[in-house]
């Protein structure tokens, strides 16, 4: 059986909030290393890969592989009943038809308990190869969100160009064009303000801004975001959490003219 206790419900609330507009029905695949989710959006353009490591829970117990088939709209309805600071416990049997969730207020004067019906989801799994990306950019997640939102006001697509002079986000729209160029920032006092660019070769790829703006809903999970880019392969947008947990989004590039 699964028993997983989170010190603060807000971790799961934020993760589900960040992905529920991209994917609706998906399996939480549980085993002794944690809770994983991999799901593509309906158009097969974006992929969500979540890993909540056992280390992010206290305690975490799951002695065999358990697939928890969830509708994220339903899960959101239940999670809305949890306060951010509540202690959240997930429980499921080995072949579950429901997921038990309890929310305990931190001063323990209130315990809420919900059982959520599960679905049998036959999910496609994609093999994601380990990739040495040509460019890895680490930046404040709020900055990335601002760039994507600002450019989406002008255009459907953004071209991300990483070179020795920095990283340039450029768009062309009906009303005109725009671009934002970022250079390396080293803020010793506040490392989360750093912009780091690791480059092995220049890259230039075009992506749909609609999806990038959607990924930015994960902004609350981490103060920094990492973009991994190589020519002609999907972009990886990564939000790292404590305990080695992460939320990753993959986005297929736009090609041709």
């Amino acid at each position: 059986m699964l028993e997983a206790r989170l010190e603060q419900a807000q971790l799961l609330k934020k993760v589900v909030d960040a992905i529920k507009d991209l994917v609706q029905d998906c399996n939480f695949d549980c085993n002794d290393s944690g809770i994983a989710l991999q799901a593509m959006d309906n158009s097969h353009v974006a992929l969500v890969s979540m890993m909540l490591k056992a280390e992010s829970f206290n305690p975490f117990r799951c002695d065999r592989n358990i697939a928890i088939g969830l509708n994220l709209v339903s899960l959101t309805k239940v999670l809305r009943a949890a306060q951010n600071e509540d202690i959240l416990t997930l429980k499921a049997e080995d072949a579950p038809d429901s997921l038990n969730l309890t929310f305990e207020s931190s001063d323990k004067d209130r315990i809420s308990e919900y059982d959520l019906k599960l679905m049998d989801i036959d999910q496609e799994h994609l093999g994601i190869p380990d990739t040495d990306y040509s460019a890895t950019i680490s930046m404040p997640s709020a900055e990335f969100k601002r760039i994507c939102t600002d450019l989406m006001a002008m255009s459907e697509s953004v071209t991300i160009e990483a070179g020795k002079d920095g990283i340039k986000f450029a768009c062309n729209g009906d009303i005109g064009n725009g671009s934002i160029t970022l250079r390396t920032v080293q803020d010793v006092e506040n490392k989360e303000n750093n912009i780091e660019i690791a480059l092995t070769e220049p890259v230039s790829l075009t992506f749909s801004l609609k999806y990038l703006v959607n990924f930015c809903k994960a902004q609350n999970l981490s103060k920094t975001v990492k973009l991994h880019i190589s020519n002609e392969v999907p972009l990886l947008v990564e939000y790292a959490m404590e305990g080695g947990s992460y939320l990753r989004f993959y986005l297929a590039p736009k090609i041709g003219d």
Partner: peptide, 14 residues
């Protein structure tokens, strides 16, 4: 206008 690509072109189904 560039064409939106499909992720399945890059990642094999397993």
């Amino acid at each position: 206008t560039p064409i939106q690509n499909d992720l399945s072109e890059y990642f094999a189904l397993i």
